[in-house]
Design a protein around this nucleic acid. Structure first.
Lengths: 226, 226
DNA sequence: TCTCGTATGTACCAAGCGGTGAGTTACCGA
DNA sequence: TCGGTAACTCACCGCTTGGTACATACGAGA
């Protein structure tokens, strides 16, 4: 995850008993910059993040950011691309095809729920990118039309459910995905204002099971009601 | 550009008791700064907004921003307070008590839907404030624990529905509000990334009626399913 | 009219910002 | 062994940023 090599030099930090074993490794440096930048952008937004601040948290220097990425904006795009890539890779591991339509639907919703809860940093990046009207995302050929695999899975489940006469047919897969996403994203993205106003922490572990069931009930009830 | 009408029930200090024809320039200047700052912060976020930029769009000068508000951060807090104040004032006008529980629920969801769609700027401010972990909102005594009136209305509807044996009883008002908010906020807050990835504009007027019905069906089906 | 405090405009600043010029070192293939 | 180049360091730059010192126009009450 983070840089494996703190490297002594100006030792403001602790430990680092390791002798100076500074090797040149482009991949490692690139990865370290991306990791630190991801944390920094997710934490403070694009405009709020500081290149100097990112550099200070690096074992290398600011110059390397420009050497590898060109500039702040390109670095941010690279962060976005990596984050989306990782999330999509995780989504592709979903396998609920062997379940009954209703059970599969509930399971998919639950997995999406878990998934979003496990990656708050990603949700923050998405929120930030929306503030900027997704201009960076739209400008990146790697990300523009990369739909989530989850929607295809959802489409298959819905089709089976309709074939069995269990599900209504005036709601498409993207509608359902939108509802699931909305619920899951909202919990993380709006956590702080919601808590400040309603005094409820939507991510409180104590109510997690209730919230997870709530989402499942919601989509199942909706699709099975005519 | 300049707001011709002071009309500020949200004024933090002013009496606002029918000023005689010629309002003091102070009120108008304050209001103008707030209006421009609201647009600018909503557009670019807190860190992305520039005091100089706001000043340039004013009929007065930057000096006045510091004279009336003290600094960028205090200006931002004032913007938040005004925005929340206005939204709550609108929410209090909701009246669905005369309807049957199911119809009332659907109507409230629909009104919230309309309401959020009509104030994208507010949604953006909320998103921005969440990026900053609601620290400004929590720090404002005027806003910290003031719940939306909509939740009380919802609570009354749910109670009536339960009394009539129509609604399930393991879902509370805040759960339902959370679901409704999630759906409505998501449409606006995540509009751009959702569109970039799934090629669906959730605010497309052509699908508005479908989306509105979707939300109504969702909450009604959920509450009426045992 | 003359005050005097409120409201406003002008000019300016130091710090911080993203970004770069130019030289230096470690690695690798020949 | 050795040269070429990728990887890296250091010092520096020009502009933008939020913020302010200071002068002053205005108008209501004496």
């Amino acid at each position: 995850m983070t840089a494996p090599r703190p490297d002594s030099e100006l030792g403001t930090d602790t430990a680092a008993v390791r002798p100076a074993e500074r090797t040149r490794d482009a991949d490692r440096t690139r990865a370290e910059i991306l990791a630190v930048a991801t944390a920094e952008f997710a934490d403070r937004g694009y405009a709020g993040a500081r290149v100097n601040e990112i550099a200070d948290k690096l074992s290398t220097t600011k110059r390397m950011i420009y050497y590898y990425f060109g500039g702040k904006e390109q670095l941010y795009v690279a962060v976005l691309e990596q984050a989306y890539g990782r999330i999509r890779a995780l989504e592709q591991q979903v396998d609920v095809e062997h379940l009954e339509p209703v059970a599969a639907l509930r399971e998919l919703a639950g997995l999406t729920f878990d998934h979003h809860e496990a990656h708050p940093e990603f949700i923050r990046l998405v929120s930030i990118e929306n503030i900027h009207r997704a201009e960076h995302l739209a400008g990146s050929p790697a990300l523009a039309g990369l739909a989530a695999p989850a929607v295809d899975v959802l489409g298959a489940i819905l089709q089976r459910g309709r074939d069995d006469g269990l599900f209504r047919d005036d709601v498409d897969a993207l509608d359902v995905h939108q509802v699931i996403s909305a619920f899951c994203v909202f919990r993380t993205a709006n956590r702080h204002t919601f808590r400040a106003i309603f005094d409820r922490d939507m991510l409180d572990p104590a109510t997690r099971a209730h919230q997870r069931k709530l989402l499942g009930d919601l989509v199942v009830a909706h699709l099975t009601t005519r």
